[in-house]
Each structure stands twice: as C-alpha cells, then as structure tokens.
Simulated assay, not measured.
Amino acid sequence: MKKISVLLVIGFCLLQMQRAQAWGFFAHQRINRLAVFTLPPEMMGFYKHHIVYLTENAVNPDARRYAVKDEAPRHYIDLDEYGDSAVYKLPRRWEDAVKKYTEDTLMAYGIVPWQINRMKFQLTRAFKDRNAREILRLSADLGHYIGDGNVPLHTTSNYNGQMTNQKGIHGFWESRLPELFSDNYDFFVGRAEYVERPQQRAWQAVTEANTALDSVFTFERKLNAEYSPDKKYSYEQRGNVNTLVYSKAYSGDFHRMLGGQVERRMRAAIRMVGDFWYTCWVDAGQPDLNGLVDFKFSKEEQEQMQKEQQEWQKRREGNTKIREEAHNHPHGADEDHHAFAEVEGDCSCCSFHVFLTETKIEMPIFALPPSRIPSVTAK
C-alpha cells in the first residue's frame, strides 16, 4: 500500500488563486487572434492592426459576469434540463422559444446560441455605422461567445463534473489541455466564408459540442480509475507559486483518448469566428475599413479599460467579497452557477480537496513559503 505524505501551508488554497498567468483565458485569446487570419484583404488590414486589442479583450465577457445583470447565461446552455433530444427540439428562433418555455426559463438554463445571433446583428450595425470602437468591442465579444458555444461542457448542467464525481473537469478540458498541447494543433482553417443562416450555424456549433460531451465524461472516468491520486496531480511553478494541476501524464493520456476532440473544437471556433465577422461585414454592405485602421481609443477609454482589467484581476485573486462568495460556493450554489468553473478553469483548491479525500490524508498544517511546498510523492 502506498503511503503519501504531504505538508500543507496555511492559506495554501489562497495561494493557488494568486496566479501570474490568466489561467483559463488562453484558448479564448488564441481563437480570436487566429480568426483574424481567415479574413479577406479588405478586412485584414483593420483587424490585423488591432489584433492585440482583439486578443487581449477576448475575455471581456467573463470579466462582466459579476457586474452586468444577465451576463452569465449568455455563455452556456444546459440542454439536459429540457429533456431527451433537446438540442433537436428547442426552437431556433428566440421569440418561439420564449413562447414555449418563457424567458425566465431560458435565462435560467442559458442562452448562448441565441446570444451569438444577437451579437451578429449588433456587429452588422456597427459595420454599417463604420463605428470602429463598436466594431472592435463587438468583434471581441462575439468571438468569446462563439468560443463558449463550441465547448462540450458549456452545454450541460453537469458543467464541472459536480454531478458525476468529476469536479475540475471543466478547466481540465478547456484550459489545461489547450495550454499543454495546442502548440501542435493544425490551426490552418482556410478563408472565412459567408454564413447564410447565422442562427442555424450557432445551433450547429452547440449541437456538435453537445454530441462530444459523452466522450469527455466517459474517458475521464475510465482514466481516473487507472490512476492513483498522487499520479493524477502534480505541482507546477507559476510565477512564485506552486500550483496543483492535473499531471502531464494524466493530461496526455486523456488528450490521446479524446482523439483530437479539443483540436477539432478549437478549429471549429476559429473558423466560425472568422465566418461571422466576415458575414457581418458583407451584410453591412462591405464598408471600406481602410479609413478606420488608425482608430485609437481615447486616453480616458484606455484608462477605463485598464481599471476594469485591474478590478477583474482583483476578483480573480480572491480579494473581493464577490470572489470569496464564489469560492465558498464553487460548484453551483450561487446564481451564476457556471461562473466559477468557466472563469477560473480548474479550481486548484477544489482539486486538492478531492485529492485529499481520495487519499484519506490527515493533514498537518505548517506555514511554508511556496518554494518549500514539497512535491506529492509515493513511497
């Protein structure tokens, strides 16, 4: 029998939240950035000139989740709440869905496919108005919602495996795997094409994502049975913090079992973002964007964006009451029941709690600097 000895610092869980990198935002930013290169020359100049903005602000919708009423449901749809074959039975038009289920019900279970279509109309209007500020803002936001709609775990109420004893699987699939393996993905998806029926395309993305969901849970459950907890998790240095993560071996095996699923969903998202940006531009009459290339946000706007980013970073670091409440109820107790798993990716505190539960370790409490937290070892 293996004996596992671990020393835990007071405040270990808090340290896990103080990360140097934007853990969980990697894929969203890469999707928006790569979508720029699918665009035709008439759009490429403007979008490429502002590619840094589109990349960095790909996460803005997540930053608004606690500040804007009704923002949270725009990121997901819990199809299982509507019964069997819901993805094929739900009305595609918002008005029809409201008549059948009421708006309160739709908001309770998420509206991401309808939100994508709504954003499409808003971006088209911005192109018609040749409003560079709104074109950039809405392009970044639309890319985020499309990215969410292509993630299998954004289509179920079991979004973080909390119903199947697989807590942490959301960040594992959405964050850990892309960060480890996406450098080897083929992201050449071709040129953007016009979307004849945007609402149907949004539902197609959600349907394909939901179809992949069973494999995510089944393969992780099977793999978990083959790994001891000390091999399933490992520490990685992030800045000056030792963070508990899914081990590279466990991640690699899961990634291979999925057979390219994460790559396919990222490719689909990149292509779809480019297609929607292009479609909005075409529907607006293909306005000349060359005159907008040199647009710059005002000093006041830049300061405001910087302030919002700083406030969001504080929330992510657990320095606000909102974040503390989210952490106290990490998997569904608060109103924004997808927020914790999606925004933070894999919660290291909760993963570590699962680790301790699985190994039945009695933990002595010591105060150690991060550099002296020992690795998990088996004897």
Rank of each mutant, 00 (worst) to 15 (best):
144 H>P: 02
200 Q>E: 15
28 H>R: 03
71 E>K: 07
272 M>K: 03
333 A>S: 06
71 E>G: 01
210 N>G: 01
256 R>A: 12
55 T>H: 12
152 P>A: 08
105 T>Q: 12
226 E>S: 06
245 V>N: 09
46 F>P: 01
11 G>R: 00
66 Y>P: 01
6 V>N: 04
144 H>W: 13
364 P>E: 12
245 V>R: 15
186 D>V: 00
158 N>C: 11
129 D>I: 10
157 S>E: 14
342 E>L: 01
207 T>F: 04
11 G>H: 00
304 Q>C: 01
246 Y>W: 13
294 D>S: 12
58 A>R: 08
259 G>I: 04
263 E>N: 05
300 E>G: 00
374 P>M: 01
177 L>K: 03
205 A>L: 15
80 D>R: 09
61 P>K: 06
62 D>C: 02
78 D>F: 14
216 V>M: 13
195 V>E: 14
43 M>P: 00
108 A>Y: 11
9 V>W: 04
265 R>F: 04
199 Q>N: 10
296 K>Q: 06
233 Y>E: 09
80 D>C: 04
24 G>H: 11
263 E>W: 08
128 K>R: 15
3 K>D: 03
359 T>I: 10
211 T>Q: 08
349 C>Q: 09
357 T>N: 06
79 L>F: 14
319 N>F: 11
269 A>T: 01
91 P>Q: 07
123 L>Q: 09
5 S>Q: 13
153 L>K: 07
252 G>D: 14
96 D>V: 03
161 G>V: 06
59 V>H: 01
39 L>I: 10
95 E>N: 06
222 K>I: 07
328 N>T: 04
9 V>N: 07
48 K>W: 14
197 R>V: 05
374 P>W: 02
189 V>W: 00
238 R>C: 04
83 G>I: 12
134 E>R: 14
226 E>A: 07
47 Y>F: 15
227 Y>E: 06
217 F>Y: 15
55 T>F: 11
205 A>K: 04
